[in-house]
Each structure stands twice: as C-alpha cells, then as structure tokens.
Design a protein around this nucleic acid. Structure first.
Lengths: 204, 204
DNA sequence: ACTTTTGCACTGACCGGTCAGTCCAAGGTT
DNA sequence: AACCTTGGACTGACCGGTCAGTGCAAAAGT
C-alpha cells in the first residue's frame, strides 16, 4: 500500500537502531558490521546495499539524531513563547525537553558525548555542524532574553549556552547511569534551581 | 647511580604521555600499540615489558590521571577553608581548579569524557571508582555548605554535584575546541555568574 | 520488470600479543 | 687488569586471528 519507499526505509531504521546501541556501548571501532547486521536481523550485504560504508552509516546516524534533538528544543522554546512565558521560562522548558530527549534516546546521547570533542576523526565536521545547530537554539533564547532585559547584558552568551548544555547533559547521563531510581521531576527541579540561582541561600 | 629504577619509570612515563594524546584523538580501539610505541620512541616489545596488555596500560593511565584531578580539587577546597572563605567561595575555587586542570591536561579530559558513560567495557569499574572520588570532593563541600546554612537544605546534593561538574567540563571542552582565543578568566567568570545565580537579571 | 534482500565464500590489510635474542652496567673471579 | 657471569631492560620479526568490504547467484517483495 503506502509501502513502496517504505521497505528500504524500514531496514535503514532497523540498522540505525542496531548501530546506535552497539556503538554507544562499545565505541565505533570495536563495533563490527557483522554485529550490526545481526542485531538488525539483516544480512551483511544489506548493510552495504543501503550504506556506502560503516563510516557513512555512522555519519547519517549522527545527522538524523541531532535533527531530533534540535527540533525538540525548538519546539519547547516556541511553545513557551506561544503561552506568553518569559524567556527564562523557555530555558526551563528546554531543560525539560533535553531531559526528555536523553531519556528517550540514551544511547544516542552517550555516543554523541563520546565523539564530540575528539579530533582527527573522519566525521569531525559533521559533528561540528550538528553541535552548532543545537547550541544555536539555546543561544537564540539567551539573546532574546538579554534583548528584553530579562537577563544581564554582561552575559557571555556562547559560554553560558555551552555551560547550560553541559549541565543538563552530564546531570542526565549521571542520573541514568548511577541513580536511575530518581524521577525526571527531581532532576528537572534540581537543574532548574541551579539555573535560577536558588542554590546560593536565600536570594541575591 | 640513581638510574637503575629510574630508567623503567621514565619509559613508563613516556608511554603514558604517548598513549594519552593518541587515545584522546582516536579513541582506545582505533589506537594501535604500534603507534603508541612509535610516538614514545620505544619498541613494541617494551610496551609489553612494562604493561601486561593494552587495556592495563589504559587503566593505569586513568587511575594516575584522576589522582591528579582529585588532589587539585581538594587543594582548592582546603586553601579556601584556610583563608576563611565561605563554602561557596570554595566551590568557586574548585571551578577555577577544574578549569586549570583541563587546560593543563586537555587530552586526559577528552579521553575521560569519551569513556565515562559507556557500558560493557573492560575498565568500567576502574572508571566508576575514579568518578566517584572526584564527585565526592564536590559533594563534601556542598554538604558543608548546607550544614552551615550557606545553601538551602532543599539542595539535591548528588544531582547538583553532577550538574556542576558537567557545567565546568563541557564549558571548558567547548572553550578549548571552539573558542580557544578566550581567556581562562572570561570562562571562569561566566561560570561563576551562573553558579551564583547572577544570570537571571536583578534577582527575581 | 525492477528493486531489495539474502547467504555465503573470499580477500587482504591490520593488529594484539609473543618470543628468541641483544645490550649493557654492575659485580664477581682469576 | 683482563675475563666471565648475571639480570634487568629493550628489540623487532613473526604469528594467529579479526574484520571491513567484495562478488554474485538466487530468492523475495512490490
């Protein structure tokens, strides 16, 4: 029926899913193409029918993954704006969206972290673009917040965006690896408090 | 004279130095023992004379590295206490120490980040201990700060410690990879501001 | 018909680990 | 002084296994 392009699409999806978990666990180099094919329930030849090489499979995986993240962050920011929330509320919503994302795609996140700051790798430039797209969404909200006077003009936007990104990323990964019993709301509120400066005592 | 034990020590040091940069760039699996030996200016056999295996070499490297970090964070906290600074000042000093550390040993940091959240790896448990030691130093300061009333008792200590760690880590790595022209003081003050809640406008 | 998948044998490069042997400085021995 | 001997450190050729990628004929799917 609707199936025409869908068959190929479907095997590609299965290959992505297989690859992402395996590579997150073992790393790119120690994951074999045979393993990926087996986990996806597909013949090895099919992998090469659908992707030019192991590296290309991985690059497309990265690109696909970051699209999911960027869209989700953007959606969180937009919804807040529609509801008439402040830009700081938007940041908070983005923290939540980030946590949701990491919960839904933990392997993708692990894999991304593991590769991002490496140098001399084939997919280096793919990864740079990908990172830039995600950070840009955060920076945009910060910039607006400064423009509306919500945040201080002294704010170092690129650095703060990185730091926020890192804060959410590491807290979420630690949460999942080392204290999975905590609820997402606990994590969210701890981060929210940190963002809004309610860590340091009463106020100020 | 003093040379007998020293010769081996020296070779091991050279091997560590060679391994840390190569593995940070390429990852553990795609770094060959031949490469490590060549960069260290030593024959391949020497690697195996000094270390039982490639994995053991790496594990010892991790252990050695984290000791440097933990000591440095602890020293920062202690010095602040001696000077009679508050516990929040101590956190600030630790941020600085973290940034200094990452500046001095960028490769070690990259490598650590890349491996920390992986599962099913040989050195998993080594890495867990190592992480716990570093986080514990931050948690101790947070606990003291709560005890003295400097920070709210509602503070979620483990989560906040993770988040702080991540904030510094990611901001520093991004700084080095993508905007190396910035000074360490700029980075420090941006993070400091975030920690002390001076991001969100006047006060709220 | 034509696209996609399968199954499987095969290749050639690469890589972790081994091992017989070299080098040399610091004691003996004569 | 001239000569072994010992033992720790190092060497590099070599071996066995692994793995990305190929080729292709037959089957399945649409």
């Amino acid at each position: 029926m609707d199936s025409s392009g869908t068959r190929r699409q479907n095997t590609r999806r299965k290959l992505f899913e297989a690859a992402v978990t395996l590579i997150a666990e073992q790393g790119f180099s120690s994951t074999t193409v045979d393993e990926i094919a087996e986990r996806a329930g597909v013949a090895k030849g099919t992998v090469y029918y659908n992707f030019a090489s192991k590296t290309v499979l991985f690059e497309e995986l990265l690109r696909h993954g970051i699209e999911l993240l960027t869209d989700s962050l953007q959606a969180a920011a937009d919804e807040t704006a529609e509801r008439g929330g402040s830009r700081v509320d938007a940041l908070d919503a983005m923290i939540r969206a980030g946590l949701d994302f990491i919960t839904r795609y933990p392997s993708l996140t692990q894999l991304y972290v593991a590769e991002l700051w490496r140098t001399n790798r084939a997919w280096q430039s793919t990864l740079m673009q990908v990172r830039q797209k995600a950070i840009a969404v955060i920076e945009a909200v910060l910039t607006e917040a400064v423009a509306t006077g919500e945040l201080s003009t002294e704010l170092d936007i690129p650095l703060t965006a990185s730091a926020l990104f890192g804060m959410v990323l590491v807290a979420a990964l630690d949460w999942q690896s080392f204290q999975p019993e905590r609820s997402i709301d606990e994590v969210h509120s701890a981060l929210s408090r940190l963002l809004q400066g309610r860590v340091s005592g009463a106020g100020r």
